[in-house]
């Protein structure tokens, strides 16, 4: 951590679609850097001291809830855990995450997108007996390694970085994207989910699904949780190719 004070220049995308006549533009704000400053801290300082109208989304501010993904100097990432000291020239350009409905400024509607994704891949355990389970009795056993593997894939925080970094998604508006594949891969691995490969094929067995992926792997490069997108997409593709 450097003790030297320097002035950071934030160039921030501003546009409020709720406000009649408002036009998209970039606005520059100056902030004196503090030790350990994150983009979360800097944006709040701008809001409190310079422009109270600026919109952005933070919830946990600890890198675990996925609310604050935005494009920082050209790269989609979680703003809350991005230290300003990372940028040597002190120039930080912030844009909202592309691929999602814009709410205003840096705020996008990932929630709406993710709900649709969850409904599309039916992001839940498919087992008609799941609701009848007798919870007074010992739970069904699970191999400890399988439980750990499922958790690896379930670490996704639905931040949307993979969606915004996906070239296929730019070309195919209905492309499911890595977040959806990862979710499905998680359920395909889970012995509690009784869906067959044929049923998974119905969801992802086309060009808006796993066969549309051009393997450019922006998802893998920008996933803040380092999820294994590449191997999981390849795995799903092999599995689906064997169905028909």
């Amino acid at each position: 951590m450097s003790d030297q004070e320097r002035v950071l220049k934030f160039q921030i995308f501003r546009y409020n679609p709720q406000k009649k006549g408002d036009k998209p533009r970039m606005v520059t704000y100056e902030v004196t850097e503090a030790p350990g400053m994150t983009i979360f801290i800097a944006l709040n300082e701008i809001r409190e001291q310079q422009d109270p109208s600026i919109q952005f989304d933070f919830v946990c501010r600890a890198g675990i809830c996925g609310s604050c993904a935005m494009v920082v100097n050209g790269q989609p990432t979680l703003a809350c855990r991005t230290l300003t000291s990372k940028y040597e020239d002190g120039q930080i350009k912030l844009l909202p995450l592309p691929g999602f409905e814009l709410i205003g400024d840096l705020s996008v509607n990932t929630g709406k997108f993710m709900r649709v994704m969850s409904e599309r891949v039916e992001s839940w355990i498919h087992d008609k007996y799941a609701d009848e389970v007798n919870f007074e009795k010992l739970e069904e056993r699970m191999d400890p390694d399988v439980a750990d593997e499922i958790y690896e894939l379930e670490r996704c925080v639905e931040c949307g970085c993979c969606v915004s970094a996906c070239a296929t998604k730019r070309m195919r508006p209905d492309f499911l994207s890595a977040v959806g594949f990862m979710r499905l891969a998680r359920y395909a691995l889970d012995p509690r989910d009784k869906r067959s490969d044929e049923e998974f094929y119905e969801i992802i067995g086309d060009d808006d699904g796993v066969f549309g992926c051009m393997t450019l792997l922006g998802c893998e490069d920008y996933c803040p949780k380092d999820l294994p997108h590449q191997t999981r997409i390849a795995y799903l593709r092999r599995k689906m190719a064997l169905v028909r």
Partner: peptide, 19 residues
Amino acid sequence: SPKAIRQLAAWGVPWSRVR
């Protein structure tokens, strides 16, 4: 509480397991 955790196990939580 034991019932709640077992219900969540059936609903998909990948609880860490005894080895």
